[in-house]
């Protein structure tokens, strides 16, 4: 916000300057001013009418990790598995201790409606976009890792080393926290997240939870699905079937 104010203040001052001064300088600045004004209000901000979510059917996950691979490729993650490497999506294998039933599922940021990471972040770097995607603004993240302490899903990773050759659409860097962005760079282009696209069984259904006619809403209305740690009351944007 403060930047926006600063900019408009500057434009104000510049307008004043244009009004009160005559000369070559004003003529030189004018074209820049015009273009600057034109650049605003062109693209539309995301709105709260949409809430992006995913419905994950775990039935076919056991022998597959294509979503993990696709995520790593799309976002330029190394795919390393050491405790200091970032993993935005991981495959979790579960075995019911009582019955012995086993299953697997992809685990990632659950894009909560009430995200604890956003509550605890001291600078507001952890934030929820109007369309429900929980992100880290890496420009203002100070790397305190409080969000990692607060996240009930272990969804976040801290970048422990300097990185090179990042993807132009997915800036990542040392000293800040990162996590699944639901491939926000793709969503803003009208594509679906890389994991959903890569899933060979179409088990990751991506869509707008706020639109009652969307495929995801229809399916969730008619079939059982679970939120992970529903007891915490965080209203997750990701739901699972078959847990």
């Amino acid at each position: 916000m403060s930047d926006t104010n600063e900019i408009s203040n500057t434009s104000e001052q510049r307008r004043q300057f244009l009004k009160t001064s005559v000369g070559a300088a004003a003529v030189a600045i004018a074209p820049g001013m015009l273009m600057f004004d034109m650049a605003h209000g062109k693209s539309e901000a995301v709105s709260g009418k949409v809430r992006w979510g995913m419905l994950i059917n775990t039935a076919n996950c056991e022998d597959c990790d294509k979503c993990v691979k696709a995520c790593n490729k799309e976002n330029g993650l190394s795919g390393g598995l050491s405790p200091t490497d970032s993993q935005w999506v991981r495959k979790v294998e579960l075995k019911d201790m009582r019955t012995g039933r086993s299953l697997a599922l992809p685990m990632m940021c659950q894009h909560c409606a009430e995200p604890p990471c956003v509550d605890v972040c001291p600078t507001g770097a952890s934030f929820k976009r109007a369309d429900g995607i929980v992100l880290v603004d890496k420009h203002i993240c100070i790397g305190c890792r409080y969000c990692m302490m607060a996240c009930p899903y272990k969804a976040r990773s801290f970048v422990h080393e300097p990185l090179h050759d990042q993807k132009p659409d997915v800036p990542r860097g040392k000293g800040v926290v990162e996590s699944c962005t639901m491939c926000v760079q793709r969503i803003d282009k009208g594509l679906q997240p890389a994991c959903a696209e890569a899933c060979p069984n179409k088990s990751i259904l991506f869509g707008n939870l706020n639109d009652p006619d969307s495929e995801i809403s229809n399916k969730m209305r008619t079939q059982a699905s679970t939120q992970v740690r529903a007891d915490l009351g965080l209203d997750t944007g990701l739901r699972y079937q078959g847990i």
Partner: peptide, 8 residues
């Protein structure tokens, strides 16, 4: 209630 394993 589940026994859990993963790479993370």
């Amino acid at each position: 209630g589940y026994q859990v394993t993963s790479s993370f």
